[in-house]
Amino acid sequence: MKVKALSIGMTLAAATMLAGQALAFEPTRPVEFVVASGPGGGTDNFARTIQSIITKHKLMDQSMVVLNKGGGSGAEAFLYARKNEGDPNKLYFGTNNAYLLPHVAKLAYSMEDLRPVAALAFDEFLIWVKGDSEYTTPAALIEAAKAKPNGVTFAGSQSKDTDETLVALIEQTTGTKFKYLPFNGGGEVGVQLAGGHVAANVNNPNENIGQWQAGAVKPLCVFSDKPMAKGEPVYDGKGWGDIPTCASSGVNIPSYKMPRTVWTAAGTPDEAVTYYSDVLKKVSETPEWAEYIKKTSQTGDFLAGQPLQDFITTSEKSTVGVFEAEGWLVK
């Protein structure tokens, strides 16, 4: 089966390579958008927004089909990439999970099976506590954890994923020990905090804004080197721009962001990668994209080519350091 899929992939790759030499790359059939999350997740919205912008501005002649492959924290999508080596009509949408998953779980794919195309947005992380919480600064939260190790609970999405990695990073930086409680998704995590079942979470802005508007939760600091873009006040006269950076308020982690990334399978010809990164570049310049970035309170930053490669290398290296210290690495 696998052999068959591979051989088809190879004939295809050969065919397109021949075509590629003759003229610039164009997708030859409807482009599959393979999404490394279930329907409705952050990555899913990311892919579908891009799909709708490409459709609206007619940036590609071929149509697009979205396929959700969220199994195994998104590993399913990247395994699919391995099976479709060299297929230039498939794009894979993920986060940093693409290059981090193989470090924490025994999986049949590695970074060798993927080629980065572009990163279009960076999702911020914040420390949130309940609206009426006694902790008003990150330092107070850290103090409480120092006084009572394992007594302060952070909720987060999934296990050994971005949220737990960040909590581990906080622990390693400040020399504390928190309790980490994994849930299924950001929405659930937000409600657990609003209901007072946990002390804090590290949700993305988008996942907690609804609860913040109601004053049920409040942000303490953001893991970014500079404060977020100013905007309208959200609750009690405060908006995103008023949140201090974590580094300036006692948690010395200068920056922690999750890239929203697009990949192709290994063996995809260079022309195809260039073609897609050009299309995505155009997407990132549309007003609709700016609107999406604003609504989801992400940072819009377009990376492709060497800068993207460098970013991935640095990000992978530093995160693997955290994994190593926590003993999560799989051999």
Partner: peptide, 16 residues
Amino acid sequence: AVMMGGLMIWGLTPGP
């Protein structure tokens, strides 16, 4: 979940 994704794209924030 899909509908909620839609809400956000339409510019509405689900929440209290």
